[in-house]
Nucleic acid binder design. Structure first.
Lengths: 145, 145
DNA sequence: TGATAATATTTAACATGTTAAGCATATATG
DNA sequence: CATATATGCTTAACATGTTAAATATTATCA
């Protein structure tokens, strides 16, 4: 218990998660570059498409971004007409962010390619393993510690 | 096939991997802050401890960092006496990076805490699931595409 | 050998990650 | 109602992520 030596990095969870993610992102990045958005901007647009208008705090939670990063990302997206940012009607601290038709068409336009890439990965990895992996990741992410 | 709609972000692999990683890092970050190193600096020192002196390209591969990031990180580590960087004996393009005793003691000093945190996560998640997850991640990372 | 391609690393530029602090508005409480 | 506290978001500062280009050195090969 509490060994003095660290376990091999090949079995270290943070690096393993990073390596796996890099593999996947390596397949997706060309599509994002073609669409002219970063990985993070894509996540924000996607969340807004999926769940509709919401405030920055909820976007940050759903897209796995920290608020300081999100502030900059939303500024960029708003300046480029992909989202709108309006004051909350009753709570003066909040904003409500909504995707624009331009933002929505960016997502729609690239959804087929995104799905094709995902299908290729799933085919190579195995649909069953993919499900198992997603289940394990979800369980780990919601672990009580 | 090639649906027009994107699958739910809750089953999107990149975000799922990120969420799981955030959960783990949330447990580890206090230790790193206490040790006075960033996550990436820690990875570099760890790789050098595990496999000995090597060139930046190998460090980048093993620690899952891009070379431009690694250049800055090595500069910092060298300035703070945690690694040394010397020219390769025969290949003038290369450098050889080695951890110093100061760097090694930083790792040694924090290894027990790191291992304890890992054990806690493993206990909560289940050792068998942890193994399954690591196997799946490894397989995904080495997928032929 | 001499031009050419490949390799190892760095630099540059811009976007994001991370932590702490700041600011405005809302809520709670005496 | 006044003040303290909490909440939502932004700003600041520094480290890293990402892509492209630059630099130096080595390998290739006509």
């Amino acid at each position: 218990m509490t060994e003095k030596k660290l376990r091999a990095t090949s079995r270290a969870l943070p690096i393993s998660l990073l390596r796996a993610r890099e593999k996947v992102m390596g397949q997706i990045r060309p599509m994002l570059a073609d669409a002219g958005v970063t990985e993070q901007q894509w996540r924000v647009l996607r969340v807004l498409t999926e769940d509709g208008a919401m405030d920055p705090t909820d976007i940050a939670d759903k897209s796995c971004l920290l608020l300081p990063s999100l502030t900059r990302i939303l500024k960029y997206l708003e300046e480029n007409g992909l989202v709108t940012r309006t004051k909350h009607e009753t709570d003066g601290r909040r904003f409500v962010v909504e995707i624009t038709s331009k933002g929505r068409s960016l997502i729609d336009h690239n959804a087929p390619t995104s799905n094709r890439i995902y299908s290729e990965i799933e085919a190579a990895f195995g649909a069953k393993k993919m499900d198992e992996l997603l289940d394990l990741l979800d369980e780990l992410a919601h672990l009580e510690l």
